[in-house]
Design a protein around this nucleic acid. Structure first.
Lengths: 362, 362
DNA sequence: ATGATGGCTGACAACGTTGTCATGACTACA
DNA sequence: TGTAGTCATGACAACGTTGTCAGCCATCAT
């Protein structure tokens, strides 16, 4: 009958190329002796295909190792989804970032959404270029750690209803969801903790001031001192520290000064590492109190253990993923900033007493 | 004149939708008063467009915030590239993996290639599913950390000339490029180092034996002992350790045994952490020598510093990226395995002498 | 027997882009 | 003045898929 004839002819024409170019629905349809639309229905689990036909199509597709082309599909149902989102991080190899990445992946993969991740390296130019690259790939959503002074450049996309969530830092110049740590409150918590242990001479080691979170942490730190009646004008502030080495030197500088602090607050991971090194080199690690912002692996194995204000990257990532999904699903509510509370983790370094005070008992 | 008329008419038809659906080349063409193919030429920097026209098109595209749709483009020039690769890692939040990820991103981004990264969690089912997801997105290449017993399932794709590179572990059942650490040699180096310090009673703490690298490391370790004339049958081997806690307990078990070792080799990051904890709890960290496989942050800040056999994830990532690029560019040479040498980093814990021997001087 | 119903199925257009090719305008040179 | 050559440009088809719609067949109530 007709059908068989078609199958034979077509299979000759198409099947010859097996193993060479990638098979398309046409190949599968030809091999199964059905129309291409029927293949589409089967591949997308649409109803309205008889079981017998379905089996034939499934068999043919397996035989050819056929794989649906998502790009072609999402082109046709235009305006529809590519099941991918773009994720912009300071660096994919930064532990804090990669925890966020992981949490997002977990939340998104259950919906079959893949993640494009890219590293910014604190370069505002890269920020724009990478966003453009994501847009060119027609991602369904954008999750960004902003660096540039303003994120107004995403406005056209955002107003086109491209779901956008900012993480870690709040955006400037756009109205969009954001998921952030309570930076100021966390830093304030650290300061209050040190003050409660009797410290009056605190120092601040901070990151580059063009980073919003760094400014927030400084603000929280200083406000906490002021609230305790400590003159903030005399507090040594060392900023612009962006790596271990500069933080190490700043720490040594602080301790070598006329009126050295008895406690240090370091506002970021690498800065904390540098401070730890500086203190250890001067044999001051068991004498000068230290509280760092950001938790890190093995902090409890240090001597003493390092007291930190921990962020919760996994919660930030999960929340960001939930927001993106909600927006993708059509949530039109007003943009909102979600704050993930930080947490003080006591391990020893932050409980060292200032000289002249008795050792604390926990 | 004619052209102006066209501009006006078309712009009414298309420009009305600005801010709503995404503009296409047709919109830009209409606004610029040119044909759509001319827009294509301008957007792709193809020659053969007069400067005046080019400027008009560029202006129109900026006004509309037009973004080339890569998916549509790569659909048309079928068989051509999507400028994306899939990267399968144990977990994107694992430091070793994320270093690889970062190195690959750096090498690939200069070519405009974006990276889909996904986490396997040691689940062979996920491995297949994620590869399928990448294929559905028509990635130009695949970089995989295999887990499943066999990777034969990628054969159809690989034989279709889809560039594939395996990292960290060599593939089974496929002929493809691989980039790996010299696991056995590295472990042998660690053992030899401990032996050279006078140790004869060594113990091995290893990961799950279904992981190829774990088996390689054990092999290298044991061969090194045998070469030194140490009876390997009596060496305590604790395997199947996949997290800190199990490694900690195994360490405590070893030290509590009748004939405790004087030195420990831990074959992986988390296992090293567990061993460190176990030793510290028993106050043995300055007595029992320890060499770990895999370097980690702050290893030098431990007491004593932790001697490790460091892998070089950045080199692995870079090399893998280079191989993928070469294959994408048409390299048809026979698949090859590239070995990235590991490196012993001496920090103290591996130089602790066994009891009865004088303290070493470095 | 008749018409209506409903289940399967495939032809066709369209998604946004680019390769191919034809066209028309202009230049250069005989 | 004619002819070949160059250059800029756009019409058109096609990439692989899916939404729409129409057609076919069997079933069922009248």
């Amino acid at each position: 009958m007709m059908k068989d004839e078609v199958v034979t002819t077509m299979s000759n024409r198409y099947q010859a190329e097996v193993g060479k170019s990638r098979p398309t629905m046409r190949h599968v349809a030809a091999l199964a002796g059905v129309g291409i639309k029927t293949v589409s229905r089967v591949m997308n689990n649409e109803p309205g295909v008889s079981e017998a036909t379905r089996l034939r199509v499934v068999g043919a597709s397996q035989q050819l190792n056929y794989q649906l082309d998502m790009a072609a599909g999402s082109l046709r149902r235009s305006g529809r989804q590519t099941l991918s989102v773009g994720l912009l991080l300071p660096s994919v190899s930064n532990p804090f970032s990669s925890e966020i990445h992981r949490a997002m992946e977990d939340a998104l993969s259950v919906r079959g959404i893949a993640v494009f991740a890219a590293s910014l390296d604190d370069d505002p130019e890269r920020e724009k270029a990478l966003v453009a690259a994501f847009l060119g790939r027609r991602v369904d959503g954008l999750v960004l750690t902003p660096i540039a002074r303003s994120q107004a450049y995403v406005i056209p996309e955002h107003s086109r209803d491209l779901p956008t969530v900012f993480i870690d830092r709040e955006p400037v110049g756009v109205e969009a969801d954001a998921v952030v740590t309570d930076n100021a409150a966390g830093a304030a918590k650290a300061a209050a903790h040190l003050i409660s242990r009797g410290h009056r001479k605190l120092a601040y080691l901070g990151d580059r001031t063009d980073i919003q979170t760094a400014r927030e942490r400084r603000r929280g730190f200083l406000e906490s001192l002021a609230a305790a009646g400590i003159a903030t004008s005399a507090v040594p502030i060392r900023e612009g520290l962006h790596d271990e080495e500069s933080a190490r030197q700043a720490t040594r500088g602080l301790l070598g000064s006329d009126d050295p602090p008895t406690a240090i607050f370091s506002s970021q991971n690498l800065v904390t590492f540098g401070a730890m090194r500086g203190l250890k080199e001067l044999n001051a690690n068991k004498r000068i109190a230290l509280v760092g912002f950001d938790d890190f692996a093995l902090a409890d194995m240090m001597d003493p253990g390092i007291t930190v204000v921990a962020q919760h990257p996994e919660r930030i990532g999960k929340l960001a993923a939930e927001r993106i999904l909600a927006r993708i699903d059509g949530d039109q509510s007003a943009p909102q900033t979600y704050v993930v509370p930080s947490e003080l983790i006591v391990r020893g370094s932050g409980e060292l007493a200032p000289p002249g005070l008795p050792a604390p008992h926990l």
